[in-house]
Amino acid sequence: MTEYKLVVVGAGGVGKSALTIQLIQNHFVDEYDPTIEDSYRKQVVIDGETCLLDILDTAGQEEYSAMRDQYMRTGEGFLCVFAINNTKSFEDIHHYREQIKRVKDSEDVPMVLVGNKCDLPSRTVDTKQAQDLARSYGIPFIETSAKTRQGVDDAFYTLVREIRKHKEKMSKDGKKKKKKSKTKCVIM
């Protein structure tokens, strides 16, 4: 069974824990209790493949930012979460993405942009803004509501699919490099 290491990042209060708990335990946590770091595991079937999701729910508070490099190193894919009623959390996505790329030393890291709290009427981040940002990053965008469960499975499952595509691409690139290195030079 394939294991996928997913990391949920975003500013404090955007609903990272609520999304994760909704996926794992099928219930909505409405009281806000700032996370330092929590880890969850769940076995699911995605596109006919049974897999184990190892999900790291991270601290959004700035005082825990020193811990970010460590979990970013171990993560295979990242859910970059903002709240649709919090423009600052949307603007912060850029910083999370840049930090992930720096730590992973790669421009090509599996990510999904997630606009959470889409059940709320007080939207300050337009869907088109988020779609445009995701398009500019070359990553999928999904709106979710941890409260109603809308888009929750889709967000995590899409990230797994992005990781699969990335692994497939990397193995193809690896095979191309191996083929090239088999060419021999004969000096007579």
Rank of each mutant, 00 (worst) to 15 (best):
L6Y: 06
L6D: 03
V7Q: 12
V7I: 14
V7Y: 03
V8L: 05
V9H: 14
A11P: 08
G12E: 15
G13W: 13
G13N: 11
A18V: 07
L19I: 11
T20G: 01
T20E: 00
T20N: 03
I24D: 01
I24M: 12
Q25S: 09
H27P: 00
V29Y: 11
D30E: 12
E31Q: 14
P34F: 02
T35K: 00
T35D: 00
I36W: 01
E37Q: 02
D38W: 00
Y40E: 00
Q43F: 09
V44N: 15
V45F: 07
V45G: 12
V45Q: 15
I46Q: 15
D47F: 14
E49L: 04
E49G: 08
C51H: 13
C51R: 09
L53N: 15
D54I: 03
I55G: 01
L56V: 03
D57P: 00
D57E: 00
A59G: 06
G60F: 00
G60C: 00
E63V: 04
E63A: 07
E63P: 04
E63W: 03
Y64V: 02
Y64W: 08
A66I: 05
A66E: 04
R68P: 03
D69R: 08
T74R: 08
G75F: 09
E76R: 05
G77E: 00
V81I: 07
F82N: 05
N86G: 11
N86E: 13
N86Q: 10
K88L: 14
I100D: 03
K101D: 12
K101Y: 13
V103F: 15
V103S: 09
D108E: 09
D108R: 12
V109K: 08
V109A: 10
P110V: 04
L113N: 03
V114M: 05
N116I: 05
C118W: 07
C118H: 11
L120Y: 15
L120V: 15
P121M: 10
P121D: 13
S122D: 11
S122G: 12
R123C: 11
T124K: 10
V125H: 12
D126S: 08
T127R: 05
T127L: 07
T127D: 10
K128I: 07
K128S: 07
L133Y: 12
S136C: 07
S136F: 07
S136A: 05
S136D: 15
Y137H: 09
I142N: 07
S145H: 03
S145A: 15
A146S: 02
V152H: 11
V152M: 10
D153G: 07
E162Q: 05
E162K: 11
K165W: 15
H166C: 08
K169Y: 15
K169A: 02
K172E: 03
D173L: 15
K178L: 09
K178T: 11
S181V: 14
M188K: 10
